[in-house]
Nucleic acid binder design. Structure first.
Lengths: 182, 182
DNA sequence: ACCTGAACACCGTTCAAGT
DNA sequence: ACCTGAACACCGTTCAAGT
């Protein structure tokens, strides 16, 4: 990759991140990104084949934060339910301010062709770790996919309806209680 | 309303229902509906100010079915959890085959300006009845809005990811368990 | 009153032409 | 190699002109 191309790519991602943060996924057009980054539309698409692929690059840091959040939750002193609530809450917070991201990642969970595969794998892996460590405290037979979808679904409505933290916390509490129930 | 207008309106809804059922909300364009119904685009918009308003008319029967489903579930012999699972399952089934409807109704829950207000009111009312009748068996302080959003969220991902009934049932079981937990 | 259909505004994506 | 920007395809919605 040529140096000028690299610079273009980096600037695009940086500028796109600011725009998406401000207006959400559907509030920003590809033309807007191209203009703001000072490149032609073709350049944008040369680096990112779709708008979703660009969004995936914008959310790059997310992946590491997911790992950190599970680590923290699992290291907590407390019941299985407490750990779940902490982890779920952090997960939703991680997507807070990225309007449209929660729904997109959740819908990509079963789709191997989505630009978000890497993120999905991370997220599923995180929930698998939760299952492995919390083991018998959880409802028997529960899968990482199921937990991921449940929490992702809550995150998606929380995002789309702009719920406040109290409401989200309450919903996550219901899910956590359901997951520790015999 | 003139007789010819009435006939046009009815035909539009009927044809649109078939198209939406087949291809989902985003799979059908307003032009397609107009063409199939044999009217101009202007006529379509004279009867329905937005695509969502048309969709609301298409889902007309839904409202009564919601009432029937709660009635049936509350009349069941069984635990509070059983009743919840039955009602939630029926709710998701009611939206089955209407791709895009679950998400739209769930997102409209807090929005008084949505074309789906009537449906939301019905749905919220149904969950309020559940709370009133199941009373102390449920988690204290739970609201109709919270239940509606939780089940709606599950319905939305089930719809968007085309989950099979087993997976949906399992997720609804988690939610139901969470709602009856102390 | 009600209808038609061309036109508008917007957006994701592509591609011929340039450097 | 990489870039530009006009053009394409599509879609929700509007509106001037007709009956």
């Amino acid at each position: 990759m040529r140096a000028d191309a690299r610079r273009n790519r980096d600037r695009i991602v940086e500028i796109a991140r600011a725009l998406f943060k401000d207006k959400g996924f559907s509030g920003v057009s590809m033309d807007e990104v191209a203009k703001a980054a000072g490149v032609g539309a073709g350049t944008l698409y040369r680096h990112f084949p779709t708008k979703e692929a660009l969004y995936d690059a914008v959310l790059e840091a997310w992946t590491d934060k997911v790992k950190a959040a599970v680590d923290r939750a699992l290291g907590l002193d407390g019941s299985a339910r407490d750990k779940l609530v902490s982890w779920f809450g952090d997960y939703v917070d991680l997507l807070n301010g990225h309007k449209g991201a929660a729904a997109r990642i959740t819908l990509a969970l079963g789709d191997p062709d989505s630009p978000f595969v890497a993120k999905c794998t991370r997220y599923l892996g995180a929930n698998q770790r939760v299952i492995d460590e919390l083991g018998p405290a959880l409802r028997p037979g529960v899968s990482a996919m199921e937990i991921s979808r449940l929490v992702g679904a809550v995150a998606a409505v929380a995002d789309a309806s702009a719920l406040d933290p109290d409401e989200v916390g309450s919903m996550l509490g219901v899910v956590a209680d359901g997951l520790v129930a015999a």
